[in-house]
C-alpha cells in the first residue's frame, strides 16, 4: 500500500494505492486518526484510483472515518475506484453514503 495525504483548505485528500487488506488496516486507521487529530479537517476525499484490491477490513476503516467526519458535519467522498474496487464499495453500501467523483477537482468543487 502507498499512502499520501494532502490538506487543501479544510479538506484532507487521502491518496491510496496498491492492495488494501487486513495487513494494512490498522496502520491506515492510525495514520488517518492521527492526521484528523492534528489538524482541522472538515471533509475527506479518498482517492482510490491506484487501489488494486480492497477487502472488508479496509471498508471498516473507511466507514469509521466517515462516522467521525459526518458527526462534525463534513462530507466524505471517493475518487475513481477501479471496477473491482467499485463493485466492493457498492455491495457494501458505502457508495450510498459517500459520493463518487471522477477526479479530485470534481470532488473538491462539489464538497466545499
Amino acid at each position: 500500500m502507498r499512502l499520501d495525504l494532502e490538506l487543501i483548505q479544510d479538506t484532507l485528500i487521502v491518496r491510496l494505492s496498491g492492495d488494501l487488506d487486513l495487513g494494512v488496516a490498522d496502520y491506515l486507521r492510525d495514520v488517518l486518526e492521527d492526521s484528523l487529530d492534528r489538524q482541522p479537517v472538515k471533509n475527506l476525499v479518498f482517492n482510490l484510483a491506484g487501489v488494486s484490491f480492497v477487502d472488508s477490513s479496509v471498508l471498516g476503516v473507511l466507514l469509521g472515518r466517515y462516522k467521525r467526519i459526518s458527526r462534525n458535519g463534513g462530507k466524505v467522498c471517493v475518487v475513481k475506484p477501479q471496477p473491482q474496487v467499485h463493485r466492493i464499495l457498492e455491495l457494501s453500501g458505502l457508495l450510498r453514503i459517500m459520493a463518487e467523483f471522477p477526479g479530485e477537482t470534481d470532488a473538491l468543487e462539489n464538497i466545499g
Binding site: F53, D55, S56, Q84
Partner: peptide
C-alpha cells in the same frame, strides 16, 4: 480476471476471519 478478483476477495475474507 473479474472471477480471479472475486476469488481473491473470498480468500482474504476467510483467512482474515481465521486470524482476527
Amino acid at each position: 480476471l473479474p472471477d480471479l478478483e472475486e476469488i481473491k476477495v473470498a480468500v482474504s475474507e476467510a483467512v482474515g476471519n481465521s486470524i482476527i
